[in-house]
């Protein structure tokens, strides 16, 4: 009984891993962060840090 459950569990894990391997083979991963996201994040961080420092952080 236990071995049946273990086997089913192993098959389920295999199915999940295969699903991601399929995604990995595609040229485009749906919803992945792009270069635009990274640039936007860098700019946002820079503006927040520099803006906050210039407006209030200077002793």
């Amino acid at each position: 009984m236990n071995s049946q459950v273990d086997e089913a569990r192993a098959q389920d894990l295999e199915r999940r891993i295969r699903a991601y391997e399929e995604l990995e083979r595609r040229a485009h991963w749906p919803g992945a962060l792009s270069v635009r996201d990274v640039v936007a994040l860098c700019l946002l961080t820079l503006v927040m840090v520099a803006g906050a420092y210039l407006l209030g952080g200077q002793p």
Partner: peptide
Amino acid sequence: LQGIAAIIIGNIIGVVLAASSTCV
């Protein structure tokens, strides 16, 4: 005034680095 600046600077740096290494 300085506290608001410290809160914004500290949190953005901490959250961006923590999220980049785990959430991505």
